[in-house]
């Protein structure tokens, strides 16, 4: 997206809104990516499916954060806050998955699952 490059977080009083076109462009891209993710989601690509879906979702989310939420113009502190919250979400995931991937498979709940709960006293 070349045309954002001309947008600089210039002095406060200067930016009186962007061209509306930019918002519509982002919107169009978001719809395009939605269509892409639906199409790739229905293809059978094996393990790649989830990564493609997450990749597209991340791209969409990045577009929303950068342009709809104006992260491009936000001060450093705000960017840092948001990025840090994402980083710690990932820390939570990694910590738990470090456990799941290396746990004895026999101790995983999926080893002997039941959908019917036994009667409790």
């Amino acid at each position: 997206m070349a045309h954002e490059a001309t947008e600089t977080p210039a002095s406060k009083d200067e930016h009186h809104g962007h061209g509306v076109g930019r918002y519509f462009l982002v919107w169009g891209l978001l719809l395009l990516f939605t269509a892409t993710t639906v199409i790739t989601g229905r293809m059978d690509l094996g393990a790649a499916n989830i990564f493609i879906a997450l990749f597209i979702a991340t791209v969409k989310a990045t577009l929303v954060v950068l342009f709809f939420m104006h992260m491009t113009e936000a001060p450093g502190a705000n960017r840092l806050v948001f990025v840090v919250s994402l980083v710690f979400s990932i820390v939570l995931m990694i910590g738990v998955f470090g456990d799941l991937w290396t746990r004895n498979p026999m101790t995983l709940p999926s080893a002997a699952p039941t959908t019917e709960a036994p009667e409790r006293p």
């Binding site: 705000n78 806050v81 948001f82 840090v84 919250s85 979400s89 939570l92 995931m93 998955f97």
Partner: peptide
Amino acid sequence: RLGMWLFLGTEVLLFAGLFLGYTV
């Protein structure tokens, strides 16, 4: 604005717990 972004950060972590449940 900083306060709002901090709040959004807490929301991200709130949903992170659910996404964790999903991935697990």
